[in-house]
Each structure stands twice: as structure tokens, then as C-alpha cells.
Amino acid sequence: MKHYEVEILDAKTREKLCFLDKVEPHATIAEIKNLFTKTHPQWYPARQSLRLDPKGKSLKDEDVLQKLPVGTTATLYFRDLGAQISWVTVFLTEYAGPLFIYLLFYFRVPFIYGHKYDFTSSRHTVVHLACICHSFHYIKRLLETLFVHRFSHGTMPLRNIFKNCTYYWGFAAWMAYYINHPLYTPPTYGAQQVKLALAIFVICQLGNFSIHMALRDLRPAGSKTRKIPYPTKNPFTWLFLLVSCPNYTYEVGSWIGFAIMTQCLPVALFSLVGFTQMTIWAKGKHRSYLKEFRDYPPLRMPIIPFLL
């Protein structure tokens, strides 16, 4: 059985960083990364991007050496992705923050609204209902991160945790300040508006959870398998008939419901920014589905049925 020789060059300087002799033909890129780490321990596998061309796409960890368009002496180019952190850690951090930050404003801890309001309670029912909904949303997200989601990528750049936390924590503080303010004004149409908004919120939260469970069942634990998601017997998953990412559709719907319930401008802005970002993600995933699966359902749109 022939063996391969693998040289790894710096993608920027073309400097030879490592030479691997007698590499098995069936070795994966993940195994080559581990061998590279032995000579350069500062670059652990998650930091490494190996590619066939200095400006090309990163090879997948599961790619097999003998199936790549290389000879028995293969040249790979290395790029440092920077310090990495696990997706689970990032999600837990960015979701735990809003949960606790919101509660600080809800309980009106000292130095927020003035001494005479310390630890007082709002007289408006919608304020307490909003706290329950907000807390439920982020507790749900935390539990899904721990027990439901299966991540195709193990890590992301460390800098992302600061960007994500600034976004989630900042908006949580902004909306919580106004919703729990002693001078907060309840919704214009009173109980009817709150009940309608609560119904929207609850339905969308159930829908979002149902989609996450359906997506989880598509991917076996520990794998990166991708399949076309289809509706199940659960009615909340029937939205798969019309959109590629109904989890985002339901998520946006939840925040629209919360915005109607609280009639709070920061919540509306958070919903708008979230919708914009999720639309970008949904379009990317939709394109990926179309590219990977020739039999992908043609009627589906990325996030909004028939429109977007």
C-alpha cells in the first residue's frame, strides 16, 4: 500500500511549517490536523484551516487524503483561524445574560430607577406577564442548547462571544429598562391586545421548539449528516411545506408577539434587527439546500412563505 507525503505551508508566506512522512492514504484531514498539532501545539485542530490552494476553501475534517486531487506528495496550505471557543459555551453565555439582566430590572434592584423604587413591584399585569415570557424564552434556549441542538461545527472564533453578548445583553437591558420602569405605560388596547400578543408568542414558541426537535431527529448524534427536513405529524412542522427555516419564522413571530404585548420600541427594534439577521441566515441555508439536494422542494422560500 502506497503512503503519502504531506507538506504543510503557510498560506500567506509559503513557508514550510511541517512535513509529514508515510501518511496513510485513508487518513482524514482531521487526522492530519492532529499530526500537525504534534509539531505545532500552539495551533490545536480547531484553529487550523487546511486547504489545497492558499486562497481556496477550507477542507472538511472528514475529507480523505486519497480522494483529494493531489499526488502522493501533497501540499496543503495552513491558515490560523485564531483562538476558538465551543458553540455550546457561546450559546449558554449569550442566553444566560439576558435572563439575569432582565430580572435585575424586573425586581428593580438599587441604583436603576431611584431609591424610592428599590425592590418595588409594578401594578401592571402586563409587566409581570412580559417577565414570565422573556424568562421562559431564554430558559427554553438554554435547555435546547444543552439537550436538543446538535452542532455541525464544534467551535467558533473567540471574538464572537463578545459580539454576541453585546447584542443580546445590550438589547435585554434596553428593553427591560423601559418595560419595568415605574412610569411604564400599558398597551393602548389593554387586555385584548395583551391576550392576542400572548397567543402569538406561545404559538410561536411551541412552533420553534417543534422545529428544533424535528431538525434534531434528522441528524444522528456525533454526525454531520444533512438531510432535507420534511413536515412530521406535528402540525407545527407543517411550515416546512413553505419555508426552509421555519425555526427562524417562529422565532421572529415570538418577538413580534412580545413587541405587541409590551408596546415597547426597543423590543420592536430588537425584532427588526433579529429578523434582518435571521433572513440572512435563512437565505444562506436555503441556497445550501438547493445546491446540495437536486430534489429539494421548489415551493419553499427561505423564511416567509411566498415572499422571502
Rank of each mutant, 00 (worst) to 15 (best):
N34H: 07
E5Y: 12
P186R: 09
Q48L: 07
L272V: 10
N164P: 14
A11P: 10
Y184P: 15
V202S: 02
P302C: 06
F100P: 12
H128P: 04
K16H: 13
P298H: 00
A191S: 08
A199S: 05
I260H: 13
S122C: 04
H286K: 04
F270V: 04
A197K: 15
A173P: 12
Q42K: 03
R300S: 03
L103F: 14
H149C: 01
M175I: 07
I139T: 09
I256A: 00
F19H: 05
A30E: 10
P98S: 10
I200N: 05
L92G: 08
H153F: 06
D61Y: 05
Y95W: 01
D80R: 15
Q66K: 06
S58Y: 03
N34E: 11
A191V: 11
Y250W: 15
F151R: 15
K291R: 11
D10R: 03
L142H: 00
Q193T: 06
H153C: 06
T72S: 13
H137G: 10
I211K: 15
E7V: 07
I112A: 15
T13I: 11
A173C: 11
F36G: 14
K227E: 10
P41A: 06
L196V: 06
T279R: 14
P182T: 03
G114V: 04
G207Y: 04
S244T: 11
E15I: 01
L92R: 02
P157N: 12
Y95I: 02
Q193P: 07
K163W: 04
F236M: 00
A83D: 00
N247P: 13
G82E: 10
I101M: 14
L99T: 04
V23Q: 00
Y44W: 08
I280F: 12
P98H: 03
Y177L: 06
V126W: 02
Y177H: 07
Y230K: 14
R150F: 05
K60N: 09
G71V: 10
F100E: 03
L103M: 05
G97L: 00
V127M: 07
H286L: 08
T237Q: 15
F111M: 04
H134K: 00
Y44L: 07
N208G: 10
D295V: 11
T120N: 05
T39S: 09
L146A: 06
I228F: 10
Q84M: 05
L142M: 02
T125K: 07
A11K: 12
M213K: 13
G154K: 14
R79I: 13
T72P: 06
F293R: 13
I179F: 02
L272S: 14
Y178G: 04
R287C: 11
F100A: 12
W87M: 02
S288N: 11
L265I: 05
L17S: 13
K285S: 00
T75I: 09
T262G: 13
R294M: 11
K22I: 03
N180A: 07
H212W: 08
L50R: 04
A30Y: 07
V6M: 13
V70K: 15
A197S: 08
F136V: 06
P157L: 08
H181Q: 02
V267S: 12
N208T: 12
G154T: 05
Y138S: 00
F162W: 01
V267D: 05
H149M: 05
I8A: 00
M261T: 05
T276V: 01
F236A: 02
I112M: 00
E31V: 07
K16Q: 07
P25Q: 13
F111I: 14
P231N: 08
Y44M: 12
A221E: 05
P266A: 06
L50C: 11
